[in-house]
Design a protein around this nucleic acid. Structure first.
Lengths: 195, 195, 195, 195
DNA sequence: ACTCGCGGGACATCCCGTTTAT
DNA sequence: ATAAACGGGATGTCCCGCGAGT
């Protein structure tokens, strides 16, 4: 009984996966339970805050996982332009690989409950900022001034998220790729101007 | 009283307004009915396709309304950079004016049902493309080559949508404004390079 | 406008057909309207009594049609036993011909609304009695005493209806055929005893 | 209070009682819930298959109860003819005792959903066969050849079911009693011929 | 640490009947 | 006679959250 079971982690994973595809409201707790294989009775033992808490924790976990991926992608890019391009290509690959069912794991939920759940809104915000920070840090490492890096990473994240939205809706990665291309050019221009 | 009423239009309007704030699943049909003041019994008469059809028509109407706003904003801007800035500022104004409850009327729903409802996904796609086209047309009028205009307008729309997402989640218009600023610079750079 | 249209008749026919397969409650008025191709607006013009009236008239029409069929079948049978056998075989043929979807056009509805609608119950009762009378009349014509004929025809109708129920439920005409066989033997026995 | 309650059984009982009087479609789940006093929330827990599953289980339970009654009635009859007469009289008593509102607990539903629900159709079929078997077994015990017993019991059940239908529709037990009388004579005739 | 069952409310669907006007 | 629209109620489904018990 005192054995730390992994059902809690499995529920978080399942919730995250389902929310990425369907969002918050379309994902039922029963669905999560059966997808995770965890006992339903444990739900409110592990998450006394109910669905909202489970969603918030899932978002935090998904966010951390993605931040890791972002860090490793940008770390392997020699320039800012390459980093952005690699990011856009990675997202595009994820999109087509899932047949356009898996976009950003956070965006849908963030928009859905933005005005409803402070807990989820706050968590989503922190995740977005952590992604920005990961990009900005690499730019600084590449020699960008801190303020330029911060400002550009916000725009880059926004454009990539928007590209994901447009590509998912049109079932065509062109928008995302186009975003990568222009963002790379913008990075070059920005870099030059700050020299 | 029967014969030629405007209750259908009122339902579409109410659905659109509610979806902009809450998305698709959080918006109940009862809510739509009571918000519109229309009789519930007529719902199934006007929209035999149910909630999905109502949502699709609402998206088309909201999309057309916004396209009009976009057109008038860009028409009054003397340069591409000004146009983008005006767009970003307009969106930011709408966001703070609604206390961060009203972002893009389409994005949330598009993400929620992207994999579930072809009808809504297709309609959303058409709306997004019409917005792109409105921006691109103005760029062409300003002397841009058609291909540059098309490509840039996709990126601009993506970045603005992403900025809206980030700003709404952080309850702070900074991201959106930052997007406007960088996009304006990118517009100038693009314009110069195509001269 | 004064033209006697046939939409009323078409509605009655459609209602009868649908009730034979699905019963009263599973048959929606919209279904009847679309199946009959008649204008929906005429429904309450032709049947001010609503669904109940339409059902009652449909039952009367179906009942009359079937009484005609019963009369012609028994008229062609040389003996009571032959008549019963022919009836059972005819019903069995109808059952398999419709893939066990069309049994007695009256029985389901009679059972469903027996305690709810006096109008339909009464109409159904009259139909059943007319079928009994059709059989009894032929028996009298074949020389049976009136009382024997009446009594036997009640039993015959009951057994055939029950056979229809059992055959439809088991999707196998055996019960109905067995009923025919035993009823024929009973007819012979009855006849002999009354000689 | 959770753990091991009898609310499932109460729902089954209530559903069975209501279907006997009104059939399947006229019986609402709310009605069942309020009649049984069981919590509505448990409905979906006990019967994940919904109304259809509840109906099928109710039919099985009603069918088993009636089979018991049939067995005890025929067990107390010294001859086949007596058994059939007792059965007919018992059914007639039930009919008048309920003011012609309670006929066969299965027949109405079997006819209503015969073409719609395989689960219910199959269950009904099994119930009817179990009743036949109960009668046939007694006949065999009384010395009838197996095949004669089987064949006659099918006809007896059919005739009794049909008699129930006719008596309920006419609100007069005469048809049912007449069926009993003739069936008893048929039993005697059959018995004699197989000696 | 986990489970079964309770509890009731909300959802989208779709029904039947009516009204007003052509 | 037909049509468009109203009107609201009832259906079955299914949801999320919580007890009492093991």
């Amino acid at each position: 009984m005192p054995r730390e079971s992994d059902s809690k982690q499995r529920m978080i994973k399942a919730m995250g996966r389902l929310m990425q595809r369907q969002g918050y409201y379309a994902t039922g707790l029963n669905e999560v339970v059966s997808a995770s294989g965890s006992p339903k009775g444990s739900m409110y033992f592990h998450f006394p805050g109910g669905k909202e808490q489970l969603a918030a924790e899932s978002i935090a976990v998904s966010g951390a996982r993605l931040r890791g991926m972002i860090e490793s992608i940008v770390a392997n890019a020699p320039t800012a332009a390459d980093a952005i391009l690699a990011l856009a290509r990675g997202m595009a690959a994820g999109l087509v690989g899932s047949n356009y069912t898996e976009g950003c794991p956070i965006a849908t939920v963030a928009l859905e409950v933005s005005s409803t759940s402070e807990a989820i809104r706050t968590t989503s915000d922190e995740v977005f900022r952590s992604w920005e920070a990961a990009i900005a840090k690499r730019l600084v490492d590449l020699g960008w001034p801190a303020e330029d890096a911060r400002s550009f990473s916000v725009v880059a994240l926004a454009a990539l998220e928007g590209g994901l939205l447009l590509s998912r809706t049109s079932q065509d990665v062109t928008p995302l790729l186009e975003v990568g291309k222009h963002l790379a050019r913008l990075a070059d221009a920005t870099r030059r101007s700050s020299d």
